[in-house]
Design a protein around this nucleic acid. Structure first.
Length: 737
DNA sequence: CTATTCAGTGTTTTT
DNA sequence: CACTGAATAG
């Protein structure tokens, strides 16, 4: 996977198996690894070897006979991290790792619910909704209730529901103080009922159900409480309230909780992460042992200095300073691009020359704040025929054709899944239109049942040469029958053929890629059967929902790594390009209004900086295409928070007089349309769109609009901090830069 | 009922 | 711009 390249190879457990495990540990790490059975909090800075501490501790616990693999529960935050942990453990110990519970919160909760589906009140083959599915259900609910979608946007309702669940609250438990909230609760209630009817659960539900199961069922709680002697939690700063309560419940009997975290890397507050859990943990578990890992083994000094300086601007930190015994290394390179285009071109050039110097592409990462930014970059990389791989964004299991295929598979497993049914009931088209569907929905409503059950009612009749709905019912039934005893990959194959998906995409002009992806789905199923203990269809569908990101074709080759800063957490690279460092983008505009939003953005920046081992590039663009419009931006404040002595500015080679003229088409049009120049002979400088200015009070900004002339002339300026403002030129003493 | 076109709309980050 | 939902033509 190209991560952790710096680790020495693991020694074989020869004569001194114990000591070989510890060979590369520093005193603090060693202490953490070997502490006896007790609650522990490890404050581990970026690159301080926390994954190694976690995995080595697990290996040590097992090897020294303190616990069997059975007694280990390890929670990580991403599937990537979980996988990495498994690989590392099995390289240290020659044991079967299947007995251990290692995975994400969601993955582990899923595992538990599958095992106790009856006690949890779920059908055996319950399905998992991803956020898109969840949104679709929400929309359907709102429509059926005739809700005013102006007043209650589906997204907001979805957000409300997830928040409530995250707080551990069912619809009946949410306190309401006004009509609006009452309405929301009504939707929530209806949503809950609908999900139960269909036998589906969303992400938050996995956690809440599992928590409720443990709360209510003493036998199960006791069982797991006795079983897990050691609970290890990675990225503890990112746990939510509910997740913490879940852990507490599991640990209440006799488990020793070993929590590893870094408050400076908490970047999931938007999804309920609660840094306060670290302090609460200390109190609740009466933690007497806190270990700090501050020595960084990853980055050169300049990079660490920059990260430390930046994060010092946050308040309320637990306090920690990274240091390294290595040298300062190279300065951090900063590039000021005229346009996003220009920025991409610059990155391409640098990547090329680094590659020529021998750095593998896979050891370079190109990071950005939001997925939308990858487009321009991809375009440039593609034109330069550089191999690259994009993580996140449009993931494999989220592609339209894959979603369709999965919907058929879900119906085979559980036909009551209305979401899945609606997705494919008329895809490929089989003459089922809106009219028929509406009738069906009414019928389902009357019966209080799923759409599928409603279909069965209408299907009775002369059934030769079925069409429309009866035809669909017959199709699904036939597929289910045929798949009963087939191995998973063949189920997929069979489904693709008989559903007509293959035929449909074969007929489509642009269908080649899609066909290829569908083929890849068969491969995915095959390798799933190969790897997983539970190789049923239901298990595979769960895998598809929970690990939407991981599967991609052609993962083996050397390629530049593109991803958001969020998904880069936990990874490291020889060289890192951090792009789009502009106010409004990073820190993102939307964080401006959120409490603590800016500090979270800063932590995100901190995460980004600390991904780099040797070389770090920071770049920003003065103008950028966004939402189909050119936007002018000021450099990110985070750039200013890094001491100048660490930075080295790289200027474009042939930078001519007017940087605004070199843009093409739409931009020149903008500039031309708004002269905003005073009368001829005016001695004032020409104020134009894109002009950088400084205001005495608001600081640095850029002109994004002009209006009027003479005494009335005013300009709209986007400032880094103060937002955008209209200013009268006569009044505001703007200084052009 | 289906396919195509059009206006409107919205956008951070992820399990 | 890119995607969705709805209106329109076939």
């Amino acid at each position: 996977m190209g991560i952790f390249l710096d680790d020495p190879p693991v020694a074989a457990p020869a004569l001194f198996p114990m000591s070989s495990l510890f060979s590369a540990l520093n005193p603090e790490q060693l202490e953490a690894v070997t502490l006896p059975h007790q609650p522990v909090l490890v404050l581990a800075g970026a690159g301080s070897g926390k994954t190694r501490v976690l995995t080595t501790r697990i290996a040590h616990l097992i090897q020294s006979g303190q616990v069997g693999p059975h007694g280990i529960l390890a929670v990580t935050f991403t599937n990537k991290a979980a996988k990495e942990m498994l690989v590392r453990i099995s390289s240290m110990l020659p044991i079967n790792t299947h007995g251990m519970w290692i995975g994400t919160f969601h993955g582990l909760c899923n595992r538990m619910l599958r095992a106790h589906y009856q006690d949890a009140g779920l059908p055996q083959s319950f399905q998992i909704l991803d956020s898109a599915d969840q949104l679709a259900v929400t929309k359907r609910i709102l429509k059926s209730l005739g809700a005013d979608d102006e007043k209650f946007p589906a997204r907001q309702v979805q957000w409300f529901i997830n928040n409530a669940k995250e707080e551990g609250l069912r619809a009946s438990q949410v306190e309401t103080y006004d009509d609006f909230a009452r309405k929301m609760v009504e939707f929530y209630l209806c949503y809950e009922q609908q999900c139960n009817k269909e036998g589906v659960v969303d992400f938050a539900e996995l956690l809440l159900r599992s928590y409720e199961l443990l709360t209510r069922n003493e036998i199960i709680r006791e069982h797991y409480g006795m079983r897990f002697r050691h609970i290890l939690v990675d990225e503890f700063q990112d746990t939510s309230r509910l997740q913490y309560k879940w852990l507490k419940l599991l640990a209440s009997n006799r488990a020793a909780v070993f929590a590893v975290g870094d408050d400076d890397q908490s970047i999931y507050a938007f999804r309920g992460a609660n840094t306060g859990n670290m302090k609460e943990f200390e109190r609740d578990f009466r933690v007497s042992k806190i270990i700090k890992l501050e020595q960084n083994y990853r980055s050169h000094g300049n990079i660490l200095d920059a990260a430390n300086a930046l994060i010092r601007n946050n308040s309320g930190r637990l306090g920690k300073n990274l240091w390294t015994s290595e040298g300062h290394g190279e300065p951090i390179r900063v590039y000021n691009a005229a346009t996003d285009f220009d920025e991409a071109a610059f990155i391409v050039e640098e990547v090329k020359s680094l590659h020529a110097e021998g750095v593998p592409l896979s050891q370079m990462a190109l990071l950005y704040r939001s997925n939308a930014q990858s487009r321009v970059l991809e375009h440039a990389l593609f034109n330069a025929s550089l191999a690259y791989r994009v993580y996140g964004g449009m993931r494999f299991f989220e592609r339209q054709e894959i979603k369709h295929a999965l919907a058929y598979l879900r119906l085979i497993a559980n036909p009551d899944d209305d979401n899945a049914l609606l997705r494919v009931v008329n895809f490929p088209t089989r003459g089922i239109g809106l009219r028929g569907l509406e009738q069906l929905q009414d019928e389902a409503e009357r019966q209080g049942s799923s759409l599928w059950s409603a279909m069965l009612g209408t299907g009775k009749g002369p059934d030769r040469q079925k069409k429309g709905i009866p035809g669909f019912v017959a199709l699904i039934d036939a597929m289910r029958g045929a798949c009963e005893r087939l191995p998973l990959p063949e189920i997929v194959e069979h489904m693709l053929e008989h559903s007509g998906l293959t035929a449909h995409y074969r007929a489509e002009r642009e269908g080649a890629d899609r066909l290829e992806n569908l083929n890849e789905l068969i491969n995915a199923a095959a390798s799933f059967v190969h790897e997983a203990e539970d190789d049923t269809l239901v298990a595979f569908l769960g895998h598809a929902s929970l690990e939407a990101g991981e599967h991609q074709a052609g993962g083996g080759q050397d390629a530049l790594q593109l991803m958001t800063v969020h998904s880069a957490k936990g990874l490291e690279f020889h060289s890192v390009f951090l792009s789009g460092l502009e106010e409004g983008l990073f820190p993102h505009d939307n964080s401006r209004n959120e409490a603590g939003g800016l500090e979270e953005e800063r932590r995100l920046m901190y995460v980004a900086l600390t991904r780099a081992r040797r070389r770090l590039y920071l770049s920003f663009a003065q103008s950028r295409m966004l939402h189909g419009q050119t936007r002018y931006n000021v450099p990110s404040r985070f750039l200013q928070e890094i001491p100048d002595r660490l930075l080295k500015s790289l200027q474009p080679v042939q930078k001519t007089v007017s940087r605004n003229q070199q843009r093409s088409d739409s931009n020149t049009e903008l500039a031309r349309g708004m002269p905003a120049r005073g009368p001829e002979g005016d001695s004032a400088p020409g104020w134009r769109i894109g002009q950088n200015v400084i205001h005495a009070k608001f600081g640095a900004g850029v002109i994004i609009n002009c209006e009027g002339r003479g005494a009335d002339a005013r300009v709209e300026v986007r400032f880094g901090r103060a937002g955008t403002k209209w200013l009268l030129l006569e009044y505001a003493k703007l200084i052009p830069v």
